[in-house]
Amino acid sequence: MSYTVLGSDLLPIGPVDDFLSHLTARRSSPNTVRGYAHDLANFFAWLDQRGRDFRMLTLEQLGEFFEWLRKPPPTRVPGVFVLPTGESALETSTLVRKRAALGSFYLFHSRRDTSIPALLGDPAGRRPTGRHVPLLAHTQSCVVGWLWLWV
């Protein structure tokens, strides 16, 4: 199963499509792919509101995105101000997932284009934390062993 994120012009957002295809090809959990698609849809909606390009963001500007996420959804439009209450519209676990989605997205694109910074750091060495195991994952070592016999 794959997901497509549409921009304000109702066309697929190419960099997001490339990233989600990559996640699907590496057999990430379908729930992860779906969640990351929603997270990146939020991110590109914010970029569109601000007239910004993801390739040119600074870490401080990315922080503005997370502040925007903490607002209730109806108030995430230009010209609407929310008094600080100390409460976020999203749970901390959701914000952590959105950060992971953006970190993976930027890492993927920074490896393809050196002009794009890996803004949220390189999570290399991090192990998956979910319980999803791709179908037939148990056969990978058998296939590798079988190929080794024929080399």
Rank of each mutant, 00 (worst) to 15 (best):
M1L: 05
T4P: 10
V5I: 14
L6P: 02
D9Y: 15
L10S: 13
L11C: 09
P12M: 06
I13M: 13
V16L: 09
V16Q: 01
V16P: 01
D17Q: 14
L23F: 07
R26E: 08
R26T: 08
R27S: 05
R27V: 02
S28I: 01
N31K: 11
T32E: 06
T32Q: 03
T32I: 10
T32G: 04
V33Q: 11
R34L: 07
R34H: 05
A37F: 11
H38D: 15
L40D: 00
A41H: 14
F43H: 00
A45N: 03
A45I: 06
D48Y: 15
R50N: 07
G51S: 03
R52I: 00
R52W: 15
R52E: 01
D53M: 12
M56Y: 10
M56I: 12
L57C: 01
T58V: 09
Q61M: 15
F66T: 00
E67R: 07
E67H: 11
L69M: 10
K71G: 00
P74S: 02
T75S: 15
P78I: 00
V80H: 13
G86F: 05
E91T: 03
E91S: 11
T94I: 09
R97L: 01
A100F: 05
A101N: 00
A101H: 00
L102S: 00
L102C: 03
G103E: 03
G103S: 14
F105Y: 03
L107H: 02
H109F: 12
R111T: 13
R112V: 05
D113T: 05
T114F: 06
S115H: 15
S115W: 11
P117Q: 12
G121Y: 14
P123Q: 11
P123S: 11
G125Q: 14
R126F: 09
H132F: 14
V133G: 04
L135Y: 13
L135S: 14
L136Y: 08
A137V: 03
A137W: 08
H138E: 02
H138K: 07
T139W: 07
V143L: 11
W146E: 02
L147N: 12
L147A: 01
W148Y: 08
W148H: 13
W150N: 08
